[in-house]
């Protein structure tokens, strides 16, 4: 399996800082300055006020495994070798959900409610994809 052949993200004006930060091994989120609540995916305005009142913060990178699935069907040529592969839904400590994959862990080890932490093991050229593994395994 290789993250190098993964589909590339669609980078736009709002999520570019997120992807730039991933390349520096940091997970960033937008935080609404009026409510203090974080949101994802990146957007021009806060969904809590509808106003362009937000700031970038570095997230803790920790969260809880909310749910997960295992793909057996091939949808992306660059991921064929990974089949069957898990996608996990992680509820970050800051509130938003991320859909991501497991790093250093098999789908059979996944359990809802388990604590996970972000890692940045690689991605397609010029991109670093956040992946999640056991919290204990993070240096």
């Amino acid at each position: 399996m290789s993250l190098a052949t993964r589909p590339r993200p669609q980078i736009d004006n709002w999520n570019r800082p997120f992807w730039d930060a991933c390349n520096e091994q940091r997970l960033m989120l937008q935080r609404c300055t009026a409510t203090g609540r974080c949101f994802f995916p990146p957007a021009p305005v806060s969904p809590f006020t509808g106003r362009p009142e937000w700031e970038w913060i570095t997230a803790s990178g920790r969260g809880e495994l909310w749910s997960f699935v295992v793909f057996h069907q091939s949808y992306f040529p660059g991921m064929k070798d990974e089949l069957p592969y898990p996608v996990v839904m992680v509820k970050l400590e800051e509130g938003p959900f991320l859909l991501t994959n497991l790093d250093g862990m098999e789908a059979s080890q996944a359990e809802i409610g388990m604590r996970l932490a972000v890692r940045f093991p690689g991605g397609p050229e010029g991109i670093t994809l956040p992946q999640f593994g056991s919290e204990a395994g993070v240096a």
Binding site: R6, P7, R8, P9, Q10, P41, F71, Y75, F76, M79, E82, Y85, V87, L99, T100, N101, G123, P124, I127, L129
Partner: peptide, 10 residues
């Protein structure tokens, strides 16, 4: 291409 395609979610 979609928001989650880099993670294979589709």
């Amino acid at each position: 291409d979609s928001q989650w395609s880099p993670w294979g979610m589709t």
